[in-house]
Amino acid sequence: MHGTNRCKLLKIQETDYEEVKKLYTDERVRQFLGGIVEEQIYRAKFTDMCDVNNKGLYWVIRQKDSDQFIGLVSLSLHHDSISTEISYQLLPGWWGCGYGTEVAQGIINYAFKELGLKRVVAETQTANKASCQMLKKVGMSLEETIERFGAEQSIFSIMIAAATEE
């Protein structure tokens, strides 16, 4: 995955540690993701993301023109241990500008076209209205709501036939 119209998507590397850490220590980013993550826990998560044996795919999102760090997006195994889940975190300065939608659409298309997946899911807190809206915008449909992590979660999905072209 190389990018979208406005973003470069680069496989996560050790050198991304400090920038990715900004996502895990920002209260606004972490509001619906269980809160700020302590250094030791973050270090273990980051090491796992960079591990070539990890079955997940993790990309750092950078603005094409400026190379500025925007956030992180991934495809990994969902909590159901069956489905592939798209996850994303963007720094607040990039919210509301369409970057999340653009990147999510690009990753979903990549999952279908390059990885041959037939279905992708996303899970977000139901209270995270902006995330729920963005998932609908990229063609995902609400499949179910469940209680997990002490809050109601909305599980969205999209099948290959419903995917839109980039």
Rank of each mutant, 00 (worst) to 15 (best):
F46G: 01
F46L: 08
T47K: 09
T47Y: 15
D48G: 14
C50G: 03
C50P: 07
C50F: 09
C50T: 00
K55V: 07
G56L: 11
L57I: 12
W59D: 07
W59A: 04
W59R: 00
W59F: 15
I61S: 02
R62V: 01
K64C: 01
D65T: 09
S66P: 06
S66Q: 00
D67H: 15
Q68E: 11
F69C: 03
I70V: 13
V73I: 15
V73W: 13
L75S: 06
S76Y: 05
H78D: 12
H79F: 04
I82N: 08
S83C: 10
T84R: 07
I86A: 01
I86S: 09
S87M: 04
S87Y: 01
S87H: 04
Y88S: 09
L91I: 10
G93Y: 13
W94H: 08
W94E: 01
C97H: 15
G98D: 11
G98W: 12
G98E: 03
G100S: 11
G100D: 08
T101S: 14
T101I: 11
E102L: 08
V103R: 02
A104F: 14
Q105G: 04
G106W: 06
I107Y: 01
I108R: 02
I108T: 01
I108E: 02
Y110K: 11
A111C: 02
A111M: 03
K113P: 00
G116V: 03
L117N: 04
K118L: 13
R119A: 07
R119Q: 12
R119Y: 06
V120E: 06
V121E: 02
E123W: 05
T124L: 12
T124F: 00
A127G: 08
N128F: 07
C132E: 01
Q133T: 06
Q133G: 05
M134L: 15
M134N: 02
L135E: 07
L135N: 06
K136Y: 01
K137W: 06
G139Q: 05
G139N: 02
S141E: 13
S141R: 12
L142M: 12
L142R: 01
L142F: 08
E143R: 06
E143S: 12
E144Q: 13
I146K: 15
